[in-house]
Design a protein around this nucleic acid. Structure first.
Lengths: 211, 211
DNA sequence: CGGCCCATTGACAGGCATCAAGTCCGGTGG
DNA sequence: CCACCGGACTTGATGCCTGTCAATGGGCCG
């Protein structure tokens, strides 16, 4: 993963902290900064005029958020957990992108870091069935959140999860209960999740029916 | 919209034709060409291993498809209608991108041409209610397909539409029937659609309930 | 300890998927 | 030119899933 070369952060690229819940940037405002997430989780939120809330993607350490792919940000970025990140000016970010291209001949792969989660979310939401979506999402984040084999920090509320999966919080809760009852996952405590049967999780994510 | 500068197509950038149904590129193969669509409609298809089919986006004249945003294409591109397009080598496409950046200082906006439809589809599919999705989709394509005020060429099958909206073809059909009965649209013949009441269409797309 | 937000659970209704026919249309071949 | 054929569209009946509403429980923080 391209990490904006090895240049240390200078006065233009400030390392920042942010508390959970804090706003990084607002939907519709000018793209003038790129946020490189070093630690924590960020959610990309879209609000319709009627107040419907959707989460277009979750971002994790290593992701870059707010690429000037359009003139304005297309979602609001909020900290889900406490964050550590680097804020790059968009202009400098583009320059770095190009110098990387000259040296390595790879230009766009880094952009994938933001677009890919959004793309995958579209595919997950397009699947039918609450369990399928939940499992597909879990499979896609296990590796990003894993501390050790099968054990993960999981600081997402079911409300956020529901808005990401385009279902209700109640359905989310019931889905998790099923997974717990079938011993596919366990939730020893809030913010923690253990994957007990990853194979079955993947199977369900693929649309297999429960016996 | 950036159209790869004014350079005329040379031996590297071949102008091509394609019949409806023809394959442009296959999901998972190496991104070595960018397709600039001059005329017609292309669908971006994702197949899950179990055969579930989704359409991640429709592309129209002016869009660029297959950007090397990842190492491999993330969907299969098929012609919905007869096409006219230009095939650019990915390497040359990147060079052009950068020379454009030097001259205009705008680098990534052109990329938006492919990513934006995918993003918007995710938001549409994340909405609840068949009618809402249908109307939201129609609103988003009216301007791309309009021949004259409210009259559009509409060569999408309800099957493709259903796979795009993540609903069934039957639900699509019933949704269109409702819109016809309420005189919001009319369908004089196959492949043609007239928007009679765009305001109400937008209203429904926003989640308003029918009286 | 109290309040608040989130998670959980139950009851219920409604929307939509599913299945099954039947119709329409364009294309093909005789 | 016409008959046939296949795929897409249409429509109806049925049942399940899941959204909705309401109430309770539980953990965290002030």
């Amino acid at each position: 993963m391209l990490s904006l070369k090895s240049k240390p952060p200078d006065s233009y690229d400030q390392t920042c902290q942010a508390e959970a819940g804090k706003l990084l940037f607002l939907d519709g405002t000018r793209c003038d900064h790129v946020f490189e997430l070093r630690q924590g989780i960020v959610r990309g939120v879209c609000l319709s005029r009627e107040g419907e809330r959707q989460i277009a993607a979750f971002f994790f350490a290593g992701d870059q958020i707010g690429l000037p792919v359009s003139r304005c940000y297309r979602f609001t970025a909020e900290a889900v957990t406490d964050l550590q990140y680097v804020r790059h000016s968009a202009a400098r970010w583009q320059e770095d992108l190009i110098s990387t291209w000259r040296e390595q001949g790879r230009l766009l792969p880094s952009i994938c870091a933001e677009q890919d989660p959004i793309f995958r979310r579209g595919i997950i939401v397009g699947r039918s069935g609450v369990l399928v979506r939940i499992c597909a999402f879990l499979i896609s984040v296990i590796d990003r959140l894993a501390e050790e084999d099968g054990v993960l920090e999981f600081p997402l509320t079911q409300i956020d999860l529901a808005d990401y999966l385009a279902i209700t919080p109640e359905a989310t809760c019931r889905g998790f209960r099923q997974l717990r009852e079938r011993r596919i996952i366990s939730v020893p405590r809030r913010n923690r999740l253990i994957v007990q049967d990853r194979a079955k999780l993947a199977e369900l994510a693929s649309g297999a029916q429960l016996p």
